[in-house]
Measured scan of single mutants.
Amino acid sequence: KFNKELSVAGREIVTLPNLNDPQKKAFIFSLWDDPSQSANLLAEAKKLNDAQAPK
C-alpha cells in the first residue's frame, strides 16, 4: 500500500510547476522518511504550489 501511495505522491510532487527543485527534493525526502504521511505531504506540497503560483 505505501509503495503505491509513495510513487503516486512522488510523481505528483515532481510535476508541481510552482515548486523549485529544493522544495520538491525536501518533500520527496520526507516521503521516503515516512511513507505513511504521503497523503498529508502531497496536500502540503499542493498548498505550497498554489501559494507560489504567479499572480
Results as ranks from 00 to 15, higher is better:
K1I: 14
K1P: 12
K1C: 15
K1R: 13
K1L: 12
K1Y: 14
F2N: 08
F2R: 07
F2V: 11
F2D: 07
F2I: 11
F2P: 08
F2Y: 11
N3K: 07
N3E: 13
N3P: 11
N3A: 12
N3Y: 14
N3G: 13
K4C: 15
K4G: 11
K4I: 11
K4S: 12
K4Q: 12
K4W: 13
E5P: 10
E5S: 11
E5K: 09
E5W: 13
E5G: 09
E5R: 09
E5H: 09
L6V: 11
L6T: 07
L6G: 04
L6Y: 05
L6W: 09
S7T: 13
S7V: 14
S7Q: 13
S7P: 06
V8N: 12
V8C: 12
V8H: 11
V8A: 14
V8Y: 12
V8R: 13
V8Q: 12
V8T: 11
V8D: 14
V8I: 13
A9Y: 10
A9D: 04
A9P: 02
A9K: 05
A9W: 11
A9F: 12
G10V: 15
G10A: 15
G10I: 15
G10H: 15
G10C: 15
G10N: 06
G10R: 13
R11T: 08
R11P: 02
R11W: 15
E12M: 12
E12F: 15
E12Y: 14
E12V: 13
E12H: 08
I13R: 00
I13S: 02
I13D: 00
I13L: 05
I13F: 03
I13C: 04
I13A: 01
V14H: 07
V14R: 10
V14G: 06
V14I: 14
V14F: 13
V14M: 15
T15P: 00
T15L: 14
T15D: 12
T15N: 14
T15E: 14
T15F: 10
L16R: 01
L16G: 00
L16C: 05
L16A: 02
L16P: 01
L16D: 01
L16Y: 05
L16Q: 03
P17K: 11
P17F: 03
P17L: 06
P17I: 06
N18F: 15
N18Y: 15
N18E: 02
N18M: 02
L19K: 00
L19H: 01
L19Q: 00
L19A: 00
L19D: 01
N20T: 15
N20I: 05
N20L: 10
N20K: 09
N20Q: 06
D21N: 08
D21T: 10
D21Q: 09
D21G: 13
D21R: 07
D21V: 09
D21I: 11
D21H: 07
D21E: 12
P22S: 15
P22L: 14
P22M: 15
P22R: 14
P22Q: 15
P22G: 14
Q23I: 05
Q23S: 02
Q23V: 03
Q23Y: 03
Q23N: 01
Q23P: 01
Q23H: 00
Q23F: 03
Q23E: 03
K24Q: 01
K24R: 07
K24G: 01
K24E: 00
K24V: 05
K25L: 14
K25I: 13
K25A: 13
K25W: 15
K25G: 05
K25S: 10
K25P: 03
A26N: 06
A26Q: 10
A26V: 05
A26C: 14
A26P: 03
F27M: 03
F27N: 00
F27E: 01
F27G: 00
F27W: 00
F27K: 00
F27Q: 00
F27S: 00
F27D: 01
I28W: 05
I28Q: 02
I28L: 13
I28V: 05
I28S: 03
I28H: 01
I28E: 03
I28D: 01
I28Y: 03
I28N: 01
I28P: 00
F29W: 12
F29H: 07
F29P: 01
F29Q: 09
F29C: 13
F29K: 08
F29D: 05
S30C: 14
S30F: 09
S30M: 14
S30V: 06
S30Y: 08
S30P: 00
L31A: 02
L31V: 03
L31F: 02
L31S: 02
L31W: 02
L31N: 00
L31T: 02
W32D: 05
W32V: 06
W32H: 06
W32S: 05
W32K: 03
W32L: 10
D33C: 15
D33V: 10
D33E: 13
D33Q: 14
D33I: 13
D33K: 14
D33W: 10
D33Y: 10
D33N: 13
D33L: 15
D33F: 13
D34K: 05
D34Q: 07
D34P: 02
D34S: 05
D34Y: 05
D34R: 03
D34C: 13
D34A: 05
P35L: 02
P35Y: 04
P35V: 04
P35W: 04
P35I: 03
P35M: 04
P35K: 02
P35S: 03
S36Y: 07
S36C: 07
S36L: 06
S36I: 04
Q37I: 05
Q37Y: 03
Q37V: 04
Q37P: 02
Q37L: 06
Q37A: 11
Q37S: 06
S38Q: 07
S38I: 15
S38K: 07
S38T: 12
S38W: 15
S38A: 14
S38H: 12
S38D: 04
A39Q: 10
A39Y: 07
A39R: 06
N40M: 13
N40H: 12
N40Y: 13
N40Q: 13
N40F: 13
N40P: 04
L41V: 12
L41D: 00
L41N: 02
L41P: 01
L41F: 04
L41W: 03
L41R: 02
L42H: 01
L42Y: 03
L42F: 03
L42P: 00
L42W: 04
L42T: 03
A43P: 00
A43E: 09
A43L: 10
A43K: 09
A43G: 04
E44R: 08
E44S: 07
E44D: 06
E44I: 12
E44F: 09
E44Q: 12
E44C: 14
E44A: 12
E44Y: 10
E44K: 10
A45G: 02
A45T: 01
A45F: 02
A45S: 02
A45M: 02
K46S: 04
K46N: 06
K46H: 10
K46V: 06
K46E: 03
K46A: 04
K46C: 05
K46T: 05
K46W: 05
K47N: 05
K47M: 09
L48G: 00
L48H: 02
L48F: 03
L48M: 07
L48I: 06
L48Y: 03
L48W: 04
N49W: 03
N49L: 01
N49Q: 00
D50V: 07
D50F: 08
D50K: 08
D50H: 07
D50L: 09
A51L: 12
A51I: 11
A51S: 11
A51Q: 11
A51D: 09
Q52V: 03
Q52K: 04
Q52H: 04
Q52P: 02
Q52F: 04
Q52N: 05
Q52Y: 04
Q52A: 04
Q52S: 04
Q52T: 03
A53C: 06
A53M: 08
A53W: 05
A53E: 08
A53N: 06
A53T: 08
A53L: 05
P54K: 09
P54F: 07
P54G: 09
P54Y: 08
K55R: 11
K55H: 11
K55Q: 11
K55I: 11
